[in-house]
Design a protein around this nucleic acid. Sequence first.
DNA 1: GAGCCCAATCGCACACTGTACGAGAGGAAG
DNA 2: CTTCCTCTCGTACAGTGTGCGATTGGGCTC
Lengths: 265, 265
Amino acid sequence: MSAKPFTSVWTREPKGRREQGLSRDQIVRAALELLDEEGLNALSMRKLGARLGAGATSLYWHVANKDELLELALDDVYREVLTPAGASWRETAGAVAWGLRGAVLAHPWCVGLIGVLPSIGPNALAMSDRLVKACKEAGFQGMDIDFAVGAVIAYTLGAAVPEATWRGMLSRSGGSAREAQNEMIPMIEGLAAGHPDLLERYKDYTSGGLDPLTARQIAFDYGLVALLDGLDARRPRPGATPDEGGTARVGGERVTPDAPGTAPQ
Amino acid sequence: MSAKPFTSVWTREPKGRREQGLSRDQIVRAALELLDEEGLNALSMRKLGARLGAGATSLYWHVANKDELLELALDDVYREVLTPAGASWRETAGAVAWGLRGAVLAHPWCVGLIGVLPSIGPNALAMSDRLVKACKEAGFQGMDIDFAVGAVIAYTLGAAVPEATWRGMLSRSGGSAREAQNEMIPMIEGLAAGHPDLLERYKDYTSGGLDPLTARQIAFDYGLVALLDGLDARRPRPGATPDEGGTARVGGERVTPDAPGTAPQ
DNA sequence: GAGCCCAATCGCACACTGTACGAGAGGAAG
DNA sequence: CTTCCTCTCGTACAGTGTGCGATTGGGCTC
């Protein structure tokens, strides 16, 4: 209120100390651009710094590690998965699954980070939270909520990750998806020698007259519907007696489940 | 038969040209040791060469790339997953799932390779082949065979990969799994601020009195049983009219499935 | 205004990476 | 003997993440 020259947050354009410098958001945005354009291996701190007109080590003021930077970039991918409001449990789960798949396919570099870096950023948590809420409202109880959420995300990532690298191989070999797929037949025949069933399966895939990309969509849908069906069957119907069919009812015969006839640990 | 000095494969001990040199199998074995002991980042060609008493670049005679070497190592992991002979479809699928999970957990370094490197080695193909055979015998037909196999493997890898890294974090923080889990509570509380449902879910996990490791086993089993139930329901019963419920029946309402209310592509 | 502080940037250096290249070793074949 | 072919290894190069100290320059208090 004193007689100072007029000043405001809005008149003082640069929010920071310097005129315009790096900011963490700017760095992450530039990293996302570079990753989308040239892939994971092409991202180096020097190259990223150069793109921002800054020195390589300047970035380390805003970001502790390269890994931390990649965590930020990865979490940004999770922001792309949206869920419709006021939808049923199945709709929400389906939306998360398809959205997550789409996000991974749109940013193939993240297959090298999923599972390696922790996914506990705000966007990843928000996605999980929406799924948890949907499962809870649908009647899942206790740890079953977590089991269902985990199953949907596990299936989705497990399906999307190899598909992303498969798409990368196709596009790198040039031509349409179907052409590239057909060109691979002799190589596959050599690999699958001694496994006639595998080979037959692959030929079904290519000779079906179906576009390989939509074939993968159908495959994803098939497994997703099966999983959601199975989860739905284990869901206690809301309105029934609460705590019925509750926590940790193991499905099969084994009480301490471990691999039947399988490697240790 | 001529009057040469006696010679045989067994007298000439070294099978190769040199007395004893590197061999591809030897290199892969040493790489597996190093990976199991020190992890993926610790494997460098120089270190691996030193372990074998050889120069770093000597390895490149037997192996084209570091990536190719890692492909060989990764395929060796798939060899660990065994399947019981003469088992039902569900037993085989369960054995593959648990075995694959066990193999990944036993070799945590492979989470950084799954999805990045192609998995088309002989052991990976053999595993797929066994699963394909089981699905085929159980009545699945056409592309549904591939869909079912893909779904089981996708779920398994998608569940095992984050669990492997989660186990790594626990063991790196020292102490028992439950202690480590409890120590993380304040950190989780900070992260999950604004997501009360998520937080409640996590606390259920820790306060359940269940060992975290067996809790994850139960979680894996829950999703696996749900998935197999769902797949089983879509399986045409053998003995029925063939080609019934055949190829590519899309599950839901969408014919060209793409994310409902989701990012492009 | 002068002086200071401190957030921010940068250059340099270090240890280390994958691997291309060419020289060399040494057994087998003529 | 010579010639060849398989295999090994030293050197070198371009590139990596990042620790450290020097430097800069805008905003603050006198």
